[in-house]
């Protein structure tokens, strides 16, 4: 038995020149499952006597909405950011938890004689995580520009009042760029490391020994989904706040 660890997802087949990887299939399946479940809830929506599943969905939604309001501090902003944050949360959560369904590793695709697993942990593909991170980061930039105005926003980075503030402004650029790395690699690293840890433990001592690590993976699957969505909300909140100094400046101008 050979321990097989790869960063890049396995390519199943090509459509034209587009490589179709197992994580792409996985993400489509997960999206389809979420959309189908939500359509089912919508179709069977009852106002007076909600069913069990509708109860669960309503509980999740209202709890998450109240939490977003408590973080961002205003109902108006929360209404705008909630759909994105909750979509990210539910997609990452389902994608992470789907890796714990037993037996799916046995489903393989025959690619020219070698067998490739059809399902792989979606968040263990850096491309997927990077796209979601870029959605968040670009949104944060747009919000910041919309709130502060283009020149006000540039003024945050190029500040000529004193050498120290000029240097701090340049450091802020690095901080914005580091957001991309830290946000994406937090999710990717946790899920990828969980997969590798599980594989190594299974390789060293099968059956009982990997179980505690599976529990740890279950915990990090939920926590990382939560953290990604909450950090999105926190970044947007930070970008959409006008600092008091600026208010004073604007009032004095």
């Amino acid at each position: 038995m050979e321990l097989n660890i790869s960063l890049a997802p396995d390519i199943l087949f090509y459509i034209g020149s587009l490589p179709v990887t197992n994580t792409l299939i996985g993400s489509f399946v997960i999206s389809a499952v979420i959309i189908a479940a939500m359509l089912l809830v919508k179709k069977r929506l009852k106002k007076d006597t909600p069913g069990k599943f509708q109860n669960l969905v309503e509980f999740l939604m209202s709890g998450a909405y109240d939490f977003v309001v408590s973080i961002i501090g205003s109902e108006k902003k929360a209404k705008k950011i909630f759909p994105l944050a909750f979509t990210l949360f539910i997609f990452i959560l389902v994608a992470n938890l789907a890796t714990f369904i037993p037996g799916q590793a046995a489903v393989t695709f025959n690619r020219g004689g070698e067998s490739v697993a059809i399902f792989r942990a979606v968040m263990a593909d850096y491309g997927m995580v990077f796209v979601m991170t870029m959605i968040t980061v670009i949104l944060v930039q747009i919000v910041a520009i919309a709130v502060h105005g283009p020149f006000g926003y540039m003024g945050k980075f190029f500040n000529f009042k004193s050498p120290l503030s000029f240097f701090l402004g340049l450091m802020d650029i690095v901080g914005e760029l580091a957001k991309i790395v830290s946000l994406s690699f937090r999710l990717f690293g946790n899920i990828f490391a969980g997969e590798v840890l599980g594989a190594v433990m299974l390789f060293l001592a099968p059956f009982l020994v990997p179980l505690p690590f599976m529990f740890l993976g279950l915990l990090s699957a939920v926590v990382q989904a939560f953290v990604f969505a909450v950090l999105t909300v926190v970044f947007v909140k930070l970008a959409s706040e006008i600092e008091e100094e600026e208010l004073v400046e604007e009032a004095s101008m």
Partner: peptide, 27 residues
């Protein structure tokens, strides 16, 4: 508890950078 998770996630960043570096070295 939610605030604890968020602050722990932010504290984790440096470990994430180290992980990135070691992944780059390895792969």
């Amino acid at each position: 508890v939610p605030l604890m998770f968020v602050s722990m996630a932010i504290a984790e960043s440096t470990a994430i950078y180290a992980l990135v570096i070691s992944l780059i070295i390895l792969f």
